[in-house]
Design a protein around this nucleic acid. Sequence first.
DNA 1: GTCGAAAATATAATCGATTTTTTGAATCCG
DNA 2: CGGATTCAAAAAATCGATTATATTTTCGAC
Lengths: 219, 219
Amino acid sequence: MGTPKRKGGTTRSSLIYDTLRQDLVNGRFKAGEKVAISALKEHYEVGLSPLREALNRLAAYGLLIQENQRGFRVPGLNREELDDIAEMRRELEVMALKRAIERGNAEWESELLAAAHRLRRADETSQPVEEWEQLHGKFHRTLLAPCGSAWLLRFIEQLYDQFDRYRRLAPPAPQMREHLNRQHDQLVTLALAGKVTEAQELMEDHIHRSYLVALGACQ
Amino acid sequence: MGTPKRKGGTTRSSLIYDTLRQDLVNGRFKAGEKVAISALKEHYEVGLSPLREALNRLAAYGLLIQENQRGFRVPGLNREELDDIAEMRRELEVMALKRAIERGNAEWESELLAAAHRLRRADETSQPVEEWEQLHGKFHRTLLAPCGSAWLLRFIEQLYDQFDRYRRLAPPAPQMREHLNRQHDQLVTLALAGKVTEAQELMEDHIHRSYLVALGACQ
DNA sequence: GTCGAAAATATAATCGATTTTTTGAATCCG
DNA sequence: CGGATTCAAAAAATCGATTATATTTTCGAC
């Protein structure tokens, strides 16, 4: 019958992968630190096999560093790496934005407006930070989604995670944050109006300002 | 002493990863096919744990598709995907080439000449194809190596592998191949002369011609 | 014959234990 | 003392077996 016997088709490996990815991006592990596998095992109450599979995936994704025979380490935080990440994010997101604006359809416009609205509301009602982060990521993904390139989106997602490791660790900058929030709405306006160049310039500025905030994590 | 007691620090997991990566890029698995884990286990004479870790890495890298509770599949080959891969490769390699030319030093110039020479020689003496492929990859990596962005190089490497899945499967096109080989030397000349724009244009053409060859794998 | 349910089989995922390698401390010459 | 060497403890990697899930087959009712 209509029983919720719906199988999500999930696996311990994937669950722990998602959890660890979140925790790594959120800076819950000290940068540069060695990963104590058996401690994780205890902490997350998970077996060794699924845990190791998740760690292997995370290393291939770039959120961990794998060293043969000596396990996994959390990547360090340093300015040069952040420069690289921010620069690549800028290049790729600007590229994707152009394509998204040119290819986005009416359905996309609605979703984009909705995502921006939810983000704005979460900010005004000062929701828990994790809630806001979720909606923020969702907004940026929605904005670029119709760019037409699965690989481009994949790389951008990866860079976004890398970038967020720094940004979430940086000290709060309320004024800048407010400015960044306003830019989200401006991005929507320009995107819906089809103003490619202006939207691209705004995106550059948006990422640059975020970069300035994220820099605070490097000292 | 000079004893070859050099510790490679390798692991079964990494060995099987490298082997599988090679075999996947070389098209030794049918596209779209489900991966029979226990068959691989036998074939490569490896245990289940290291094998699964390697498969997880390959899925995160994009050479396999992981589906919870139903194992791994080899990605299919289709034109749209190839278009995406080639287009991204073009964008990113052109970007990297500019930076590499601007930042490459004398040491790089020597290595680039050497890599081009080895590639040319392998072609003239008709070495085994695997030898040539190795040197070809090495040449392209050397060309872009000093671009200064680890992430850019990482993405390019990934796309190169994806692209090669198609190219190596495509029927031979000796005439085009010869033209592509000449372009390698021209790329070196332009790069060493610091002619950024011309080198970029040549790179675009090079990737486009390779794309035309690779298209042959789609029918 | 065919559709659907239920048992049987095959495969994926996970566990617990073992082996291998690294790390860190203690020891031994020079 | 300093530097290498050995040994013990810790950690990583791997194995063999078990459990859970998907897939195939069988079987009975229509």
